[in-house]
Write a protein that binds this DNA or RNA. Structure first.
Lengths: 190, 190
DNA sequence: GCTTGTATGTACCGGTCTGTATAATCTGGC
DNA sequence: GCCAGATTATACAGACCGGTACATACAAGC
């Protein structure tokens, strides 16, 4: 019986793998390092996950849920549709300043895992779709034209990548200002 | 004596490596495959490039120049500053429809090559800076506020990533429309 | 003709990778 | 007490990796 009070081997493996994959890339992290850092025996990993690919897929699934929860937090930061859309960019500003920020983990995995059938693309696509739906619903509530959802998503994704490459939070701030302009909020608050 | 009429081993290695790295990722392509596809002996590669890292760096350098040339082509597509800024998004629309489009190669390399000192980041940063300068110069010529340069760069980068993940050119078209709005060109031409 | 630089082919080294085999150990339920 | 399942430890297989060693071939310049 799996004990839910202690972390549990599977969960600890998942967290450790997610952290290492995000920090250094899926291809650059081996099974040996994952089990060593998780404090778990080799066979235990292969007991819970039949292969490294399966572990990667499980990590992507967890990341997908994590990003959805991140997006949902914007609703708690503001009460109006416009404010909630802008709050996403506040979350971005905080996120890019995290010490171990390395861009969107789903997009990052989509880039590293090349090949014909990239297992990360569907997860990244789902996330982008979710972002667009988030913006689209609230844009409609605010009586804004439908194309603002796409604009905001493009700004968000562009700022995420640019912040990583520039190693600076400036892009997130610029994206917030641009979003405020798109939303017709001249000042945009602070 | 290096013969410039025939491709030359070094150039062929560079092209082959660039293509393979872009299609499947640096870590997922070995030396053996590069020399096999380039039709070059193993020792010839190590004669021109002391290590795989050096080859990767040379490829990144070539990609950087390639992207700069791509950006410069926008000036030939229009005569006004505003038109030239918008033309960049026309180029993007064409690019993302290329069969082997895989996003910006410099950004892609920045994601795959993890680690503390990522050799691709400086190249990607230079490129983003060049894009911003391109927009900034022409925005000033057009009498537009300085922050439109950042907005357009964020839209461009966001659309590049989104088009890759979505496997569609729609994001590029949306970015073009958003750029036209930022530039105060309601219709944006076609 | 000889030298020099470039390219070739092949075999090999040490290391790392994913995944498997095998046997010992711990733990909770009945 | 006993059994079943989860976990551990270790050793190993098979493949691939980047990089080197060595001997050879070819072409051009003097």
């Amino acid at each position: 019986m799996t004990d839910s009070s202690t972390p549990g081997a599977a969960e600890r493996l998942l967290d450790t793998a997610a952290r290492l994959f995000y920090a250094r890339g899926v291809s650059n992290v081996g099974i040996n390092e994952i089990i060593a850092r998780a404090g778990v025996a080799r066979m235990t990993l292969y007991h819970h996950f039949p292969s490294k690919d399966a572990l990667v897929k499980a990590v992507l699934e967890a990341r997908r849920a994590e990003r959805a929860a991140w997006l949902a937090r914007a609703d708690e930061l503001a009460s109006t549709p416009r404010g909630r859309m802008l709050a996403v960019f506040d979350l971005l500003e905080s996120w890019v300043q995290t010490p171990d920020f390395r861009g969107c983990p789903l997009v990052a995995a989509s880039f590293e895992l090349g090949g014909q059938f990239n297992p990360a693309i569907p997860y990244a696509r789902d996330h982008i779709t979710a972002v667009r739906e988030f913006f689209a619903e609230r844009a409609e509530q605010a009586g804004l034209p439908a194309n603002v959802a796409a604009q905001l998503q493009l700004l968000l994704e562009g700022a995420t990548v640019t912040a990583l490459v520039q190693g600076s939070a400036a892009a997130a701030t610029e994206a917030r200002a641009a979003a405020a302009a798109v939303l017709g909020m001249p000042q945009g608050g602070s």
